[in-house]
Simulated scan of single mutants.
Amino acid sequence: MNTLNVGVIGLGEIGQAHCDALSHIERANLVAVADVDETVLEDTAKKYGATPYSDYEAMMEHDDLQAVVIATPDAIHKDPCLSAAAAGKHILVEKPIAMTVEESEEIIQAAEAANVKLMVGFTVRYFSQYIHAKDAVARGDLGDVISVFARRTNLITQPDRVNGRTGVMFFLGVHDFDAMRWIVGSEPVSVYCESANAVDSKYPIENETFSIIRFTNGAIGCAHIGWYLPANHPAGFDFKLDVTGSQGILSLDMMKQGIELHTTSGSRYPFMAAPLIAEDKDFVDAVLDDGPSPVSGHDGLVAVRMVLGALESIESNQPVKL
């Protein structure tokens, strides 16, 4: 059986999740990890039997390394991606592909020039509930899509967790912008966004937003993206999707996932999904079987354009063409 030797760059929360996911994939070998935090690096390397690198450039020289997962902070995706492409390594980069159109295009061009696979990590596409929604629309179960509403809200503590280095649109909104485009099956043509400012923000970032998106097929989307849930929220998130068609509706609620736990210490809605394993497996299979990238660099670029358009709209108080 062919297997793929993979390295992970960036060992924060999502990088650790990728390491765990890869360890569950039969055709994947986690052979190398890279991070600037020496303690985290050594602990992770020991846990997975991988070679540690404090410099990702050095990791590119690792014997038989074939692919990398890039899970560095959003603003520093470009350089590891370019380094990996130059070294001939296939790339799975966490969302967003980058935080500017220029850097996104540079990454895409580098991967194309090096003839390596480039996949963007839009994990929402790998939740069974969202896959069901996509399939229902594609089959025509709902008739013609009229509108789609998405909600993705998170804990009020999230800006502190990321030290205010990114706003809610790139952190969360990019997921649903991509998911709406994917499910509706049509390209976005304009976006109008409002951001609530009733409460002073610790960081100069957007925190609570509503976006209206027009698609080429005439459908309209609305996305409520924010992080003002109380810290003791039983799920820690509230993710929803409603699709309205000419012949039916579909409603998706990720918060409870079919199980509730109520004890003397409080209530919880345990998280039951494992989409990252499916995402990483799709990447591994695409490389080993020489299939198309499951989520292309272009997909990532369109989502970046949508987020940047929404942020521009907040500032201008006008719709922005995409």
Rank of each mutant, 00 (worst) to 15 (best):
G7W: 07
V8Q: 09
G10S: 04
L11P: 15
G12A: 10
E13P: 05
I14A: 10
Q16W: 06
A17E: 14
H18R: 01
L22D: 03
H24A: 12
I25G: 02
E26Y: 04
A28D: 00
A28K: 02
V33G: 06
A34I: 02
D35F: 00
D37F: 08
E38H: 03
T39N: 10
V40W: 00
E42D: 09
A45F: 10
K47M: 05
Y48S: 11
T51M: 10
S54I: 06
E57I: 12
A58G: 14
E61L: 12
V69H: 08
I70N: 03
P73Q: 04
P73K: 04
I76T: 07
H77W: 00
K78E: 14
L82C: 09
A87T: 06
H90D: 14
V93L: 01
K95P: 14
P96S: 13
M99R: 14
S104V: 05
S104I: 03
E105D: 15
A111V: 05
E112R: 07
K117A: 09
L118H: 10
M119L: 02
T123E: 12
T123V: 12
V124F: 03
R125M: 01
Y126G: 07
Y126A: 04
Q129T: 08
I131G: 08
K134W: 09
A136E: 13
D141R: 12
L142Y: 12
D144F: 03
V145L: 01
V145D: 05
V145S: 09
A150E: 13
A150I: 01
N154M: 13
I156Y: 10
T157R: 09
P159V: 01
D160C: 03
D160A: 11
D160T: 08
N163G: 06
G167M: 02
V168I: 07
M169W: 07
V174T: 12
H175P: 15
F177R: 05
V189G: 13
C193D: 11
C193P: 09
N197P: 03
N197W: 07
A198F: 09
V199K: 13
D200T: 12
S201T: 10
K202L: 06
K202T: 07
P204H: 02
I205T: 12
I205D: 09
I205P: 05
E206T: 15
T209D: 04
S211Q: 10
T216G: 08
A219S: 14
I220Y: 04
I225F: 03
I225D: 06
L229G: 10
N232V: 03
N232Y: 09
G236H: 07
V243P: 04
T244G: 02
Q257V: 05
Q257Y: 06
H262G: 06
P270Y: 00
M272E: 14
K281G: 10
D285C: 08
V295H: 05
H298K: 00
V302R: 00
A303G: 08
V304L: 00
V304T: 02
M306H: 01
G309F: 05
G309H: 09
A310M: 04
I314C: 08
I314N: 03
